[in-house]
Design a protein around this nucleic acid. Structure first.
Lengths: 337, 337
DNA sequence: TCGATACGTCGAAACGTTTCCGCGAAAGGG
DNA sequence: CCCTTTCGCGGAAACGTTTCGACGTATCGA
């Protein structure tokens, strides 16, 4: 029932190899023959059997993407990575296979050793990530979104979270703030040592310290109660707090909400700067100044690197996207007292 | 370099066919031989070439999932479907291939005609969905999440959105509310005729009408400005509004926020009932009564149906999950005036 | 006019599995 | 003790492609 290459060949009155060469373009074919073959393909609706094809070519035109541990679709940043990679892949005729980190490293080995995929993209790299040695030993290319401990061992792309954190501090400090706190990712994100959470926090704290300010920070659950608690704790640490750096995109709306409830106007009584995808900051009230997290760009870039590796061209081992500040209405000079 | 079945056979001192039979279990194998073969497989780290395998078996153990048009990762409900299917698939040794609806129906045909996947799951079915006829013509099984126009033509699973809407109305009406409005999905969701949005709205409006109440509703963008505008519009339509049905999970926090800004206490001045995933309602302040949207359950069920079809067992054509109300603090009797 | 080149096509082998068929040895029945 | 059945395994063909080598014919230079 499925139409095979030989069926196309028979109908076009040529040999199977000729059809194959028309398909691959690996050999010159006369215009007339090509026309007949292509017509035959169209009329029969022929699609080459991907499995049969993959056994002779060494590729499948499929790449795997490994999702973060505990991915549940709640974190829209994670999803933006997936969609960016997905769209980049589809645009180049690649298909995307989804793997869950829960499957563990075994499954990564599985799909590449069974020749299902041409390469792998792994996101949300942790410090001491057990997947990194596995990826290095793979005989197919891999690209990381995030920075591994040994930064030279695997091709990776990342956002400069430390610089982003520092940039937030700098912006607020320049505005005149001397009491700056950070509301960071949930505690379990730190518990699993996610690189982005650690680096952003350390970037903020380092810059605060460098400028002689108190390093004040707290993780927060992304729900109203968690945010309320975190903000209270921050004020406990520094009652004079006049500015907040929020790197917790899901919590951001609740932060604004909570500040309003506490009677603190933004930016009059409290300045807020976020590290988050731009579209999640700009539609809030007030629109929030942010250091934009270029998730889509990173995903796209990661795939680009991967196809580069697959096609055998050298790729830069490390690519760090520089932060960029979007000034909006949520940050201003502190009130005089 | 990649280790093949013959390598395993040679090392175990058996023929290739024996190795294959050990792998598939399609033939009795003596304990001793099985042991030797399995040992050989383990030591060589052999993984059968998926492509080569797929050409003889008629299956790949991969299923495709077609994402909604305009999926951007913002809608966590969409993502819950994907993750539910993904986890169900992985749990059964299946892999999941992601397709974007933007690719159009051609790509669906592509992956199944090239024998890349054993079946397809399609979510977010629209009225007059162009993918439905394509899926019907496929020579591989398909399962819909959502209800097609011709409800008997394809196996599908869905949530009874109409009943969910009606249940919200009933709950609020029973509490004594006579002025009930609905804040629904964004306008563009209605514009693309997404079945879930239409059915939920119509369920609400029908039930309101049946009970002699005014059918008041408005679509809303899921951001503070959009929600503020929508709520204003609802009050414009019915100044005596005392209860709100929210089917717009992303907007829900902003709704509570906005009501607070307007000085309306929940549930004192305004009762709120949501249709949304339970975990998105229960952590808000106040916790919101909801008709839980069983996204994970639907995804799991859809995959279960698909493997059923793949293995050739008959499946119920239509499965409609019944709504269930979770009473929380956000809905109470209206204030006496 | 003749030999060498280039072009277009074909035949056949290969890719790594699965599975049909068959064969020898062991087990069971009379 | 012989004949039949069962059991365990091997040989080889098949699956649908790709690609290597080769072959005829037209083209070109001399």
């Amino acid at each position: 029932m499925p139409v095979r290459l030989v069926d196309v060949a028979r109908r076009a009155g040529v040999s199977p190899s000729t059809v194959s060469y028309v398909l691959s373009g690996n050999r010159p074919i006369s215009a007339e023959t090509r026309r007949r073959v292509e017509e035959s393909i169209a009329e029969l609706g022929f699609r080459p059997h991907a499995g049969a094809r993959s056994i002779r070519r060494q590729s499948t035109n499929v790449v795997a993407m490994v999702l973060p541990m505990f991915a549940d679709g709640q974190s829209s940043v994670q999803m933006q990575f997936v969609f960016a990679v997905l769209h980049a892949a589809r645009a180049q005729g690649y298909n995307l296979l989804l793997l869950t980190a829960e499957d563990g490293v075994a499954e990564i080995n599985n799909v590449v050793n069974s020749a299902m995929v041409d390469g792998v993209i792994v996101m949300e790299i942790q410090v001491n990530d057990p997947r990194v040695p596995v990826l290095r030993a793979l005989d197919r290319p891999a690209v990381l979104i995030g920075t591994p401990d040994d930064a030279e061992s695997l091709v990776h792309v990342d956002f400069d979270f430390a610089a982003a954190g520092a940039m937030c501090v700098q912006h607020l400090h320049d505005l005149g703030h001397r009491h700056i706190g950070m509301l960071a990712q949930p505690a379990d994100t730190f518990a699993r040592q996610a690189g982005f959470a650690l680096r952003a926090r350390d970037g903020v704290l380092q810059e605060l310290t460098d400028r002689g300010l108190n390093p004040t920070w707290i993780p927060a659950q992304p729900n109203p109660a968690g945010v309320a608690e975190a903000i209270e704790e921050l004020f406990g640490q520094d009652p004079e707090l006049s500015a907040l750096i929020v790197y917790n995109e899901l919590a951001l709306p609740f932060v604004l909400d909570r500040l309003r409830q506490l009677g603190r106007r933004v930016p009059g009584d409290m300045s807020v700067v976020a590290i988050c995808p731009d579209d999640q900051a700009q539609h809030l009230l007030p629109a929030v100044s942010d250091v934009a997290l270029p998730a889509a760009e990173l995903g796209r870039l990661a795939f680009e690197r991967l196809v580069g590796l697959i096609s055998g061209t050298d790729q830069p081992v490390s690519t760090l996207l520089e932060p960029h500040l979007n000034r909006r209405g949520s940050a201003g000079p502190p009130l005089r007292r």
